[in-house]
Design a protein around this nucleic acid. Structure first.
Lengths: 140, 140
DNA sequence: GTAAGTACGTACATCTTTGTAAGTATGAGT
DNA sequence: ACTCATACTTACAAAGATGTACGTACTTAC
């Protein structure tokens, strides 16, 4: 009975109560709140923002210039997502050319470290990965 | 003079030649090929697939059952992306109920480790992050 | 006087991703 | 005979992410 629940029929291995899912996330479960955090952190610009903020505070336009290709709209959006998750602190000075400073919260520092590790690995592994791309080209 | 290039006007800090960008990626540059890898690895299902394949080989439908909420379509798509980057090996046995096995390549094992580190952090930090969410609720 | 810089918000267009449903070939189980 | 499982593919539709352009309020530089 119960014809079907869209997210059901899978991940039945862990019928954890919600309370348990909040104690520690389980990303493989469809309805785990961790997925939202993952979405923000691994969003197209989220990764780059976290890395750009490592080390020190930055201003909005500074970030915009650092991160190639972001639009103002998406930068603002991404910063709000990460701020909403408590990974980024925002401080606005009520001066007349607006002045806002973004920095990593303690939580954000930890997140950035993981993201950085992944990014570094990708950057250094690029040549090796590109070889795979090249092989595929030939096979045509 | 060259009115504008859509991705230009940013990330001018590194006028690296293409050869240099392939030697080692630079994710902050708009046209770096690393961004494609990042997109695949950090895609909604990419992260989960890499984690699900850690430890051992899995079959398609096995992955589908492990990863809550994936559709067959997206699982296939994601596996192809990752295979195209050389992170996943695919072995198909020409038997009649199809039998295909997916596993991490050596490169994939490295990627999965980084992704796992991030995922683990998110899962364990969930409660703390959820606090931020709760605070925001109150402020309304 | 005019242009530029600042940190966004908003409306609108579009691109990409994702989901749903259906089809495929064949053997095993009932 | 009928259904199910397998590992996809394809067509179509919907949702979400992203981009573009414009507005803002005021100051500084030219």
């Amino acid at each position: 009975m119960s014809p079907h629940r869209p997210t059901s029929g899978t991940a039945r291995s862990a019928p954890l109560p919600i309370s348990e899912q909040l104690r520690r996330g389980n990303l493989l479960a469809a309805d785990c709140p961790s997925r939202d955090v993952l979405k923000h952190v691994t969003s197209r610009w989220g990764v780059l923002v976290l890395m750009a903020l490592e080390g020190r505070t930055r201003r909005f336009s500074e970030l915009r210039r650092m991160i190639g290709g972001v639009s103002e709209r998406m930068l603002a959006q991404t910063l709000q997502w990460l701020e909403g998750d408590g990974l980024i602190d925002r401080v606005a000075y009520p001066v007349v050319p607006p002045h806002v400073e973004y920095s990593l919260s303690p939580l954000g520092v930890e997140a950035a470290a993981r993201v950085r590790a992944l990014a570094d690995w990708i950057e250094t592994s690029l040549p090796e990965i590109a070889e795979t791309w090249a092989e595929r080209e030939q096979q045509r």
